[in-house]
Design a protein around this nucleic acid. Structure first.
Length: 493
RNA sequence: CGGGAUGUAGCGCAGCCUGGUUAGCGCACCUGCUUUGGGAGCAGGGGGUCGUCGGUUCGAAUCCGACUAUCCCGACCA
């Protein structure tokens, strides 16, 4: 008789508290969030509670972006949660875009308010109002401000991390003297996003320009970082907008230029949100639970002391584990290594516990290893096991974390490439989408109405005109017009 | 907001059709013992106003209505 090991788990049993991806992707996503204790539902529809583990991931994400914002000359500030309703109405497209999803405060202090207040869905308007007070001369520009805050958009169909009514994000708002400078800022921040997502979150994103139909309400141009989830659907991971003079005109942000003439400022805004946590989950995780890239993992390695002998456990193995933890934490510059001393749980229970929570490395320190001065190290991403001496740990652990980080990125990039196809006309386009899914590269020169028609016919939307193809031109797959730019279409979250 | 489904212990479910003692099961949890290298075994135990409100009835988890929440498919979005 031949025993065949399960194909996808190296012979190990699969988690029984998680629905396999292949069976029900949405349920799998929710199961991962539940078992990894990232978030929970709040009593108010569409709102979520971010649990400590999820929030720790968010803090690391924040840290990476915040540093990059500061490196590029931005400073943080805080603007109010409540915005006068009239502010939102000053920019025609903006109000049209956001009005349907705004929550409005009508009563306060036991009385009806004279003017209803909007709970910010985004802060272009209040910030524009403030900028108009702060800007008189070209010398006052540029203004480069970011804020980390919560916003509220009353969503019809909420989904944890991806689309909740309240979410945490970051919104950068800048004002510049010239269009060139503002466009440069828009693209600079897009590149910052791409870099952080790639280097820190191991998300291979496709930076590009949004089509007219996908543009931010009130923007002249919107840029995006699009990324592919492991179900081949696209997720917009971050956006950067060139707002032209639209908000400057609506809020009277004007200044005297070098020639003594009055001019309106050019503004930008850019944001990434907690949705990135959803992106991390759907890009890297597997049927056993969460998989986190080391650079955004609150716990990068866990040391598991093992012994059947309680005295030995307490007196020899745990102290050694704590010693290794201290050394490694020093090496990793943070509190990234933990010791799991739950002796009442058997080793297997503890392995599984950390496996499900996405800890990148597991270090087993049992009597066997203790005797020879080694630990057994197991990678979360590949399941690979190795033995490392205590002396080598300080060097090898950071290396391994780096390898895992790179492997996750490479794996995701490979997946995206393998699931990206080309189509020359509508027939091919449909055929590819229906038989394969994923991203479809096409030349596209259609209108907003064409985008809508394509969506109705196929469910796919234009994700962006990737910057890397900005020079390429061809025949539009939909209208047949020549000179169309290369775009990516996909079904999206 | 349209279409569909579901709310019974932390999680997953049975019971409902055909109302009737103290509402069950698996996992998780607590105590004890035995265990311990990819989800342990035995024994004992705790935990539920059966989503909410109202109706029908002598009696409702069960029948009826409204509301609410969650999930799936659409339209909308970071």
């Amino acid at each position: 008789m031949i025993f065949i090991k399960s194909i996808n788990d190296g012979g190990n049993r699969m988690a029984k508290n998680i629905t396999p991806k292949e069976q029900d992707y949405s349920q799998w996503y929710l199961d991962v969030i539940r078992v990894a204790e990232l978030a929970d539902y709040a009593p108010v529809r569409g709102c979520m509670v971010v649990r400590p583990t999820g929030y720790s991931v968010w803090e690391l994400i924040q840290k990476h972006f915040d540093e990059a914002f500061k490196e590029t000359g931005h400073v943080n500030a805080s603007f109010p949660l409540l915005i006068p309703k009239s502010f939102l109405e000053k920019e025609a497209e903006h109000v049209e875009g956001f009005a349907p999803e705004c929550a409005v405060v009508t009563h306060a202090g036991g009385e009806e308010l004279e003017e209803p207040l909007i709970i910010r869905p985004t802060s272009e308007t209040v910030i524009g109002y403030m900028y108009s007070k702060w800007v008189q001369s070209w010398r006052d520009l540029p203004i480069l401000i970011n804020q980390w805050c919560n916003v509220m958009r009353w969503e019809k169909r909420p989904r944890l991390f991806l689309r909740t009514s309240e979410f945490l994000w970051q919104e950068g708002h800048t004002a510049h003297a010239t269009k060139e400078e503002a466009v440069e800022e828009t693209l600079l921040m897009l590149e910052v996003y791409r870099r952080i997502m790639a280097d820190e979150l191991a998300l291979p994103v496709l930076p590009g320009e949004k089509t007219e139909g996908e543009r931010f309400p009130g923007a002249d141009n919107t840029y995006t970082c699009e990324t592919m989830m492991s179900d081949k659907k696209a997720l917009q991971a971050g956006t950067s907008h060139y707002l032209g003079q639209n908000f400057a005109k609506a809020f009277d942000i004007k200044f005297q230029n070098k020639n003594g003439e009055m001019d309106f400022a050019h503004t930008t805004s850019w944001g990434v949100s907690m949705r990135l946590i959803g992106a991390l989950i759907m890009t890297h995780s597997d049927n056993d639970g969460l998989v986190l890239p080391p650079r955004v993992a609150p716990t990068k390695a866990v040391i598991i002391p093992i012994s059947t002998d309680a005295a030995k456990f307490d007196e020899e193995i745990v102290p050694k584990a704590k010693e290794l933890k201290t050394i490694l934490n020093k090496t990793l510059c943070g509190r990234f290594v933990q010791v799991d001393t739950q002796q009442h749980l058997r080793p297997g229970d503890r392995f599984f516990f950390h496996l499900q929570r996405g800890v990148p490395l597991r270090l087993e320190l049992g009597e066997k290893e203790f005797a020879v001065g080694k630990v057994k190290v197991v990678r979360r991403d590949t399941g690979e096991k190795m033995e490392i001496t205590w002396e080598e740990l300080e060097k090898r652990i950071p290396e391994l974390l780096e390898e895992i980080q790179n492997n996750l990125f490479d794996r995701a990039l490979k997946f995206r490439k393998e699931n990206t196809y080309q189509a020359a006309d509508m027939a091919q386009f449909r055929e590819v989408l229906e038989s394969k899914g994923g991203f479809v590269e096409v030349f596209f020169d259609g209108s907003k109405e064409d985008e809508k028609a394509i969506k109705e016919a196929t469910g796919a939307t234009p994700r962006c005109y990737p910057l890397e193809y900005s020079e390429e031109r061809g025949r539009c797959f939909y209208t047949g017009k020549e000179g169309a730019r290369k775009a990516i279409f996909a079904k999206a979250y």
